[in-house]
């Protein structure tokens, strides 16, 4: 418990900054919605001038862009990119921080098991993500109800929003996994930015090419807002895949970390 509290305290500032940035981005983008909704037809015509692959790549759906959920889906692509960077950063610095600052000796010579250390740290990171999500969803929901032109499905809206948290959990798990496999990460930021942007680009190219198989490769495509809007549910196959990635990564992390030598 004491490790959890200490870790959480060390995340407070960054959690606040990330939360406010995500909320700020959402508020900014949503504030453009009334203008788009007002001149919907004209806006759609402009968009039609874009080649289709480009539209798909940046997540623009002409038919739905002037509806709250359609517009939210578009906004969400960029929110999820930022959120993923936050989660991947948390994950990959979770254990490497101790090695870099040479505090692993301090922590692991205390009467705690490595499993307890890992669990406390993971919980603190998850709490940080939960708080970010609460602030983000509150801001998004508030903006949506202010700028809405017609009623929309609240449940679909919530499901899309919550998929940010699921996506973040996946990247948190991947981040920790990378950090135990590559133990001496010199710069956490470059590793996490590289990984997240890599997956993001795969997603963009996959969408542009309309390649269904690509969806399995990048977590950015596991939670398709269009599907959620139409069905008010997640796609079972991708939901399972995401959960599988998290479980597998975390299991490997627990195993490797318990067996690992803490070198100076």
């Amino acid at each position: 418990m004491n490790i959890f509290i200490y870790e959480w305290k060390s995340y407070r500032k960054s959690t606040l900054i990330w939360s406010l940035s995500l909320a700020g981005l959402t508020i900014l983008l949503f504030s453009m919605f009334p203008a788009i909704a007002k001149d919907a037809e004209e806006f759609k015509r402009v968009l039609q001038g874009f080649p289709e692959p480009v539209r798909k790549a940046i997540g623009l759906e002409i038919d739905s862009i002037a509806t709250i959920l359609g517009f939210y889906s578009y906004v969400f692509l960029y929110v999820s990119l930022c959120g993923s960077i936050q989660a991947m950063n948390l994950g990959s610095s979770l254990l490497t921080k101790e090695i870099r600052e040479k505090t692993a000796d301090f922590l692991l010579t205390k009467p705690v098991t490595r499993k307890q250390v890992l669990t406390s740290k993971l919980l603190a990171a998850v709490v940080s993500l939960i708080l970010t999500n609460i602030i983000f969803v509150t801001a998004a929901n508030m903006m949506a109800s202010i700028v809405k032109t017609e009623s929309y499905s609240i449940s679909a809206f919530i499901l899309i929003s919550v998929s940010l948290f699921l996506l973040q959990l996946i990247f948190l798990a991947i981040g920790v996994l990378v950090s135990v496999i590559v133990p001496r990460i010199k710069s956490v930021l470059s590793v996490s930015l590289g990984t997240v942007f890599g997956f993001f680009m795969v997603g963009i190219f996959g969408s542009a090419a309309g390649d269904e198989a690509m969806r399995y490769i990048t977590p950015f495509k596991y939670f398709d807002p269009a599907y959620i809007t139409n069905n008010s549910a997640y796609e079972p196959a991708f939901f399972t895949l995401g959960a599988g990635i998290i479980l597998a990564s975390i299991s490997v992390v627990y195993y490797v970390y318990s067996k690992r030598d803490i070198s100076i």
Binding site: A104, D105, L108, T109, K259, D261, I262, S263, I264
Partner: peptide, 9 residues
Amino acid sequence: IRTLLGLIY
């Protein structure tokens, strides 16, 4: 010493 403390195996 690090082996005694379980830091390395």
